[in-house]
């Protein structure tokens, strides 16, 4: 790949970037003119026939109803933590939650079925393309702060259920908050370049040498719950450093330390699987201390709602990883 072939390219890039950010601004302006109404206090979420309270939404992977199965996946994929600004029903999935990264602050978008501010006009194909390829309906690239790098591996059936769920939540007409990123990052073409280096569309394939439980855990951890998106150091170009996947980093998004979660002594080698499962359920570690930071969100809005057997499956997978020695403060 031609990384930096001379000054001409840099100038071209800058010009394109400038153009891009101007377009982005114009686009943002158009959107804000279009959207007059503020947050629209919603009726209590009635998803399928089963759910009343969105904040307590649990879902069930074994349900007959795709909406209820999709709700479960939304928990497992932690969509709520990034796409809901405040706990509770009022603004459920209506965006505005800041997602800090080294490149600036991104805001989770409105993914309710509101036609103007949400994804109400989207077809299922649009949704699948966003999740699998990181592309918007107009073909532009999403920033990887939306972890499609992981979601790309989800099955067709699960993406379809997830979409059914998103169609069923109450539409909330709330405008998106523009990302707070430096002007040169406002050019989505740059994201295309990043994707060229660091992203490949993929699909989770079960390992026939492993049992069903392991494969379930691997699928959930890698394609849905995207654990290694946080728990891995990054290469200079911003991709995951494969030799240290799951081995943690002192320089996570927002300057957070992401612990090593491989079964090595410098990781969670001295935790039992029981401790690990309990941690994913309500955040208590073996010492009786409680998770904070973004992991608290992952647990509170995500893994805490899963079935115990799925938390056990994730533990099986994580404990089968190669122990990697990686210590940092």
């Amino acid at each position: 790949m031609a990384v930096g072939r001379g000054r001409g390219r840099v100038v071209l890039f800058l010009v394109l970037a400038l153009l891009g950010s101007v377009l982005l601004l114009a686009y943002g302006w158009e959107r804000s003119v279009a959207a007059d109404a503020g947050p629209n206090p919603s009726p209590p979420a009635a998803v399928g026939d089963t759910l009343v309270d969105a904040a307590e939404l649990r879902g069930d992977p074994g349900s007959e109803d795709p909406v209820v199965r999709g709700a479960y996946l939304a928990r497992a994929g932690n969509c709520i933590a990034c796409h809901t600004e405040e706990e509770g029903d009022e603004l459920f999935l209506a965006g505005g939650k800041p997602v800090e990264t080294p490149f600036g602050t991104f805001y989770g978008t409105n993914i309710t079925p509101d036609p103007e501010n949400g994804i109400g006009e989207w077809s299922e194909e649009d949704f699948v393309r966003a999740m699998r390829e990181g592309r918007a309906p107009d073909g532009s690239h999403y920033y990887p702060s939306f972890p499609y790098t992981a979601f790309s591996g989800m099955s067709d059936a699960d993406l379809s259920d997830l979409f059914a769920f998103l169609r069923a939540v109450p539409a909330i007409s709330r405008e998106n908050v523009p990302h707070d990123i430096p002007w040169y990052a406002g050019f989505r073409g740059g994201v295309g370049f990043w994707k060229m280096l660091n992203f490949e569309e993929w699909r989770f394939e079960p390992d026939p040498d492993r049992d069903e439980e392991w494969n379930r855990g691997a699928y959930l951890a890698r394609a849905v719950a995207h654990c290694s998106e946080c728990h891995s150091p990054r290469t200079r170009s911003g991709g995951i450093d494969e030799s240290f996947r799951y081995a943690g980093t002192a320089e996570g998004p927002d300057g957070e330390t992401m612990p090593n979660i491989t079964p090595h002594d410098t990781g969670i080698g001295d935790w039992s699987e029981r401790h690990f499962v309990r941690y994913l359920e309500f955040g208590m570690d073996p010492d009786g201390d409680f998770a904070g930071g973004s992991m608290a969100d992952v647990i509170r809005e995500g893994t805490g709602f899963l079935l115990d057997e799925d938390r056990v499956a994730i533990a099986r997978y994580i404990y089968s990883l190669d122990p990697i020695e990686h210590e940092f403060d």
Partner: peptide, 16 residues
């Protein structure tokens, strides 16, 4: 017990 545990995390989240 679990409800008490949740509240530990809630404080650590913002103040530790």
């Amino acid at each position: 017990f679990i409800s008490l545990g949740d509240s530990c995390g809630a404080c650590h989240d913002s103040f530790r």
